[in-house]
Amino acid sequence: MNLPKRLTSLARGLFLALVFLFLFAPSVVVVVFSFNESRFFSLPIKGYTFDWYREMIHRTPLIDATKNSFYIATLTVVVSVGLGSITGVIFNRWRANRIVKSMISSVIPMPLLLPGLIWGLALLILFSRFDVRLSIWTVLAAHVLLTLPLVILIISTRLQTLDPAVEEAALSLGATYPETLYRVVLPHIAPALLASGLMTFTISFNEFILSFFLTGGGFNTLPIYIYSLIRWEASPIINAIATVMLVFAGLLVLAMYWIEGARALRGISRQSGEGDPAEPGAPSAIQVTQGATS
């Protein structure tokens, strides 16, 4: 290999290394400091300890907030993916004017385009106007509002890849409409359901602003609890929490790879993976990481 070629390949490697350093350095710092003996974020590190982890699991408010977040995120997945897939199927089958349909589908992602702050405020005003007491349910409503558009988009994009004649073929072969949905449409959109479910879960689990407006002070979600930790004590257990969340996100990504790999082995992946709007593993990982380090 001649010199200029070597230099360009070196430059390329260096560039990638810098980008990855930029991406992952914060996480590494968080992980390292979670084992730091000192209470303060200062170098050099004096010694290693598991104290912060021990302290973390003995904090009841933290455990409660985590439970709440899991609970809300799970409910959000059920409601959003449920509503989203039904909406997607109906919307896809709706024989409306093409322009009207494309206008509607470009308005669907609206909630994602406005700052969460505005939605939080708007919902707060709306709920108090109708005397709705703030609770887990108001947070759930907000999270569904935030995630439903994504689910609808992902699922209807996936549905468009199903030849309408395939549904007609099922009908002609004796399958009723519900049977056709269950035996043909559902298996086809399964990867999209999984992807949108994971996204919905991570968005809800990490969501801060809407939850902050709508919990009503009666309970905490994990991000709100972390926020109060930062404000009031700046304890290193924040690093421990972040590390646990990182590990959790990493496991999720691994699980996705495992599922994808297994599907590829059975020879489905090639076809059904095509045109997938969301690569299932990647976005969830990013979401979790962001939430953990913020």
């Binding site: 004649a165 395939v166 002609s172 072969l173 043909v184 086809h188």
Partner: peptide, 20 residues
């Protein structure tokens, strides 16, 4: 009478096989 109650076989132009 809906399609699923008629005893008909159809071969579509796009074949319309069940991909999964």
């Amino acid at each position: 009478v809906p399609p699923y109650k008629r005893n008909i076989g159809i071969v579509f132009q796009s074949y319309a096989l069940f991909p999964h």
